[in-house]
Write a protein that binds this DNA or RNA. Structure first.
Lengths: 200, 200
DNA sequence: CAAGTAACTGTAATTATATACAGTCAAAAG
DNA sequence: CTTTTGACTGTATATAATTACAGTTACTTG
C-alpha cells in the first residue's frame, strides 16, 4: 500500500468507522455528506485514489461495493518474540517467531509482545518454563515489578529492585542467584514489564 | 429470537456466508437468484419473516441494509464460571459470570470454560490465586492430570490419582492436605481437565 | 514554464435496488 | 370449515446509488 495523504487517511478511517457503526460500507453520498463535499464526485474521486493506492478495493457497479484491504495477520494478535540479537530492538521483525491469537487488551496495561520463559528462575512467582509472558513495553519499571531486562546481550525476566546506581534482578527461586548490576559499569535496559501470562 | 423454519434457517445461513465471502450484505436480487426464486418479492418476503422473528434487522430504504442480529458475546469467547450451585451442570447459564475474549482453540485440547483459582493449593504447579484455569470438559481423567473435580457440592482443582475405588486429589502445596475419596462412599465427578492458564 | 497530482464543484444519465401491490397454493391449527 | 402462516409468482414503480463528463484551483516536481 502506498503512502496516503492526510485527507485520504482521514477518509479511510472514516470508512472503517462507518462500517463498524453500520455493518455495511458507505455510499458515495454518505461519504460526500460526512466530508462536507458539495458533489458526490469528490467522494468518488477519493475512493478511486484509495483504490489506486491499494487501501481499498472497489467492486464495479455494485452498490456499497467497497472493501477494506485487510492488513496482515499481525494486526490482530500478539507477536511471540524468539531469540533477540545483540543490539537490536526487541520488536525487530527478525525476532518475531509467530503471532498468537491473543487480544492485547486482555491485559492491563495492554501487552505489546510475548516472551517464552526459559528456565525456572521465576518458579515461585508461578512462572514456569515454557510459559508465555505478556509484556507491556516500557523503559521504566517500579521496584518489585517483574521486568524484561536486557543486560549486555542477555534478555532475562526477573523481579526489579533499584537503589541509586545499584540494581538487583531477583529470581523467584532460591536455587538461582540474585543478579546485581552497577549501572556505572554495565549497561542495563528495561524492555518492559510483565502484565500477564499464558500457559497453553 | 423465535424458531426458524428450515427454509428460513437455510436463507439465514446463506446471508451469513454471502457476507463472509463478499464483505457486504446481499441484495434481494442476489438472494432471489441464489434460492432459485422467480421473483425478488419472495426474497423480500423471507427477509421480512427473518426480521419479524428477530434473526436480522432490515434498514428501510437502504440498499443492502441487512444486519445479522449478533448472537450474544458467548459466540466468541470463553465463559468464566463463577459459583457452581449444587447439583447443577457446571455450564449452566446461571453460573456464567462473564465471557472472556479468549480463543478456545488457543489451548489443546480446546478449552470449554474458565475457572478462577481460589486459594494456593496448587501454587507449586504455577497456579496462583486469581489465575484463570482453562478447562476442557471431560468426564475422564488420567492419573497425574490436573482436574476440575466436583466432590459432593464442592468444586476443586487438584491433581488426580486413582487406584480402583480410591482416588486422591493432591494439592501442589505442602500446606494443603491430600483429599482422599472412596468412590463407594462418596460421589466424585470429573468435570474436566486443565488445558491452560491465563494470568491477566 | 508545463505537466501531474490532489482536492474538489457541478450536473445528469444510467443502473442498482428496495418495495408496493396483486396474487396462488399448501399445510397447520382452532 | 376458516384463518393464519409459509413459500412462493408476477409486475411495476420509486428511490438509492454509481458513474460519466466537464470543469476549477492549488501545489509540487522536473
Amino acid at each position: 500500500m502506498q503512502e496516503l495523504t492526510p485527507r485520504q487517511q482521514e477518509i479511510l478511517l472514516w470508512i472503517r468507522q462507518y462500517m463498524v457503526d453500520h455493518g455495511i460500507p458507505p455510499t458515495r453520498l454518505a461519504l460526500c455528506a460526512a466530508m462536507g463535499f458539495r458533489s458526490p464526485n469528490a467522494a468518488e474521486s477519493h475512493l478511486r485514489a484509495l483504490e489506486r493506492k491499494g487501501a481499498i478495493e472497489l467492486v464495479q457497479g455494485v452498490s456499497r461495493g467497497i472493501r477494506l484491504v485487510e492488513g496482515p495477520k499481525e494486526a490482530s494478535g500478539l507477536p511471540l518474540i524468539g531469540k533477540v540479537a545483540a543490539g537490536q530492538p526487541i520488536l525487530a521483525l527478525a525476532h518475531i517467531e509467530s503471532y498468537e491469537p491473543i487480544a492485547p487488551e486482555l491485559f492491563q496495561p495492554v501487552a505489546h509482545y510475548l516472551l517464552r520463559v526459559q528456565g525456572e528462575s521465576m518458579r515461585n512467582a508461578g512462572i514456569l518454563e515454557g510459559d508465555l509472558v505478556a509484556v507491556h513495553h516500557t523503559l521504566i519499571a517500579q521496584n518489585g515489578q517483574i521486568v524484561v531486562a536486557r543486560l549486555e546481550d542477555e534478555v532475562t525476566i526477573k523481579r526489579f529492585y533499584r537503589q541509586g546506581e545499584r540494581v538487583e534482578l531477583r529470581p523467584e527461586n532460591p536455587d538461582y542467584p540474585v543478579i546485581e548490576v552497577n549501572l556505572k559499569k554495565h549497561a542495563l535496559h528495561i524492555e518492559g514489564v510483565m502484565v500477564g501470562l499464558i500457559r497453553a
